[in-house]
C-alpha cells in the first residue's frame, strides 16, 4: 500500500514529489506523422497522446441538405487498449469517449475560423497511447498543436489543465491547497475539475467537473487552473515557435 493523498498535508508534497502549483513535465513535438495534414505528439507526465488532423475537406457523407456555412470539427478519440494499467478493449461508442469527443469538438468549434471553409469538415483524431490523469486536458492541448500544424486558422491556442482540491489537514481551518495538473492516482482520490482557456487573456472555453467539491474551495481551484492554463499556453507556444524556426531554417538553409 503506497502512500495516498492524505499525506499531502504532512509536507505539502504530492504523491510524485511535486508542489501544489507545479505542472508535470510537458513535452510535445509537431509534424510527427507525415501522411496527415497536421499532427502532434504530446506527453503530459505519463499521459501520451498522438493527434492527427485531416482537412479541411469535403464531408465523406453529405448529411441531407447541408447548408452550413461553417467548417465542422469532427473529433474521434481512440483510447488504445494498452493505455491504462489494465489491458482492456473499449467499445467504440462508449459514453465517456463520446463525451470526450463532444467536449473537444465544441471547444474548437469556438476558436477555429470555420466560416473560411464552408461545407467542409476538419477531422481531428486523438490516439491515447498512455493514460495517467488529465486526459481531457491533454487531448485539448494535443489537438491545439495538431490543428496549428495543419494550418487551420484559429483565433488562439486552447490550453488546458486540471486542478484538484487537496484534503485539508485540520478540519477547523480550511487550509487545503488546490493542486495543479493531476496524475492518475490523484484523479482517483480527489475532487477535481478540468479547465481550458483560449487566448492570452484566459477566456474559459471548457470547464468540466464531475466530482463534488465544497463550494468555498472552487474559487481558488479555478484561479489556480487559469494560471496553469497560462503556463501551458506558454509551453505550447514555445513548442510551435521552435518547430517553425526549424522548418524555416530547413527551407532557407
Amino acid at each position: 500500500m503506497p502512500l495516498d493523498t492524505s499525506t499531502y498535508a504532512l509536507a505539502h508534497l504530492r504523491l510524485d514529489g511535486r508542489r501544489w502549483n507545479e505542472l508535470r513535465r510537458l513535452h510535445a513535438s509537431l509534424s510527427v506523422q507525415s501522411s496527415s495534414d497536421g499532427s502532434a505528439y504530446l506527453e503530459q507526465g505519463n499521459t501520451k497522446i498522438l493527434a492527427t488532423v485531416s482537412g479541411p475537406q469535403e464531408p465523406v457523407r453529405r448529411t441531407g441538405r447541408d447548408g452550413s456555412s461553417e467548417a465542422k470539427i469532427e473529433v474521434e478519440v481512440n483510447v488504445t487498449p494498452f493505455s491504462g494499467t489494465d489491458r482492456k478493449r473499449r467499445a467504440k461508442g462508449e459514453k465517456r469517449v463520446q463525451e470526450l469527443q463532444l467536449t473537444v469538438a465544441r471547444a474548437f468549434q469556438g476558436v477555429v475560423l470555420g466560416h473560411l471553409y464552408p461545407h467542409s469538415v476538419v477531422e481531428v483524431r486523438l490516439h491515447v497511447l498512455s493514460q495517467d490523469g488529465s486526459l481531457l486536458a491533454a487531448c485539448l492541448n494535443a489537438a491545439t498543436l495538431a490543428l496549428i500544424d495543419a494550418g487551420i486558422p484559429m483565433t488562439d491556442y486552447i490550453a488546458a489543465c486540471t486542478v484538484a482540491s487537496s484534503p485539508s489537514s485540520d478540519q477547523s481551518i480550511d487550509d487545503s491547497d488546490p493542486l495543479l495538473d493531476l496524475n492518475g492516482l490523484e484523479e482517483q482520490e480527489l475532487p477535481f475539475l478540468s479547465i481550458a482557456t483560449s487566448g492570452e487573456e484566459g477566456k474559459v472555453c471548457v470547464l468540466m467537473m464531475e466530482t463534488k467539491v465544497q463550494m468555498a474551495r472552487l474559487e481558488a481551484m479555478v484561479s489556480v487552473g487559469l494560471d496553469g492554463c497560462g503556463q501551458i499556453r506558454g509551453i505550447l507556444d514555445e513548442v510551435v515557435r521552435q518547430h517553425g524556426k526549424r522548418v524555416l531554417e530547413a527551407k532557407v538553409g
Binding site: A11, L13, L15, D16, G17, R18, R19, E22, R24, R25, G45, N46, T85, D86, D132, N183, L185
Partner: peptide
C-alpha cells in the same frame, strides 16, 4: 492479475 505500474517521481532540493 498482475499489473505493472509506472509512476513519475519529481526529485527536488527544496524539501
Amino acid at each position: 492479475k498482475v499489473q505493472k505500474i509506472v509512476r513519475e517521481l519529481y526529485l527536488r532540493q527544496d524539501i
